[in-house]
Computed example of a mutant assay.
Amino acid sequence: MAPCKTASAESLCTGAARAGNFKAQYRLGMLYSAGELLPRDDAKARIYLSMAAGRCQGRHCAPGHARQVGVRAHALSAG
């Protein structure tokens, strides 16, 4: 993806994540964690995955998924 498009997509997702959009929070957390399309940033990944885990209380995702997202966020703080 071209740098301009990546920055634009990151900006849109960040705005949606801050507005409480679970999918944007989760995707940003995973993208920052992977470090492929966005630069790896464990602190940002942890923040967005923690936000997603907080939103994922049966309303937005399958049972058990909130725990998995939270475990991923915690693993980033331990590593």
Rank of each mutant, 00 (worst) to 15 (best):
D41T: 00
D41G: 08
D41K: 14
D41I: 03
D42A: 12
D42E: 10
D42F: 08
D42C: 04
D42N: 13
D42I: 07
D42L: 13
K44R: 15
K44Y: 04
A45G: 04
A45L: 01
R46G: 02
R46N: 02
R46H: 04
R46F: 03
I47C: 01
I47A: 00
Y48E: 02
Y48V: 03
Y48H: 15
Y48D: 00
L49E: 01
L49G: 06
L49W: 05
L49T: 05
L49A: 09
S50L: 12
S50P: 10
A52R: 13
A52M: 03
A52S: 14
A53F: 05
A53D: 02
A53N: 05
A53L: 06
G54Q: 11
G54A: 14
G54M: 11
R55E: 03
C56D: 07
C56T: 08
C56L: 11
C56S: 08
Q57A: 11
Q57H: 04
Q57M: 12
Q57Y: 00
Q57K: 09
Q57D: 14
Q57F: 03
G58E: 00
G58I: 14
G58A: 10
G58P: 04
R59M: 06
R59C: 08
R59F: 08
H60L: 14
H60I: 08
H60S: 10
H60D: 09
H60M: 08
H60P: 00
C61Q: 09
C61D: 08
C61P: 10
C61F: 02
C61M: 10
C61R: 07
A62P: 07
A62L: 14
A62H: 12
P63Y: 10
P63C: 09
P63S: 14
P63E: 13
P63A: 13
G64H: 15
G64M: 13
H65E: 15
H65G: 04
H65T: 15
A66R: 02
A66T: 00
A66E: 02
A66W: 01
R67P: 05
R67C: 06
Q68S: 13
Q68F: 03
Q68K: 15
Q68E: 15
Q68H: 09
Q68A: 15
V69G: 00
V69Y: 00
V69Q: 01
G70Y: 07
G70T: 11
G70R: 13
G70K: 06
G70N: 08
G70W: 08
V71E: 12
V71K: 06
V71R: 11
R72D: 01
R72Y: 08
R72I: 01
R72M: 05
R72K: 15
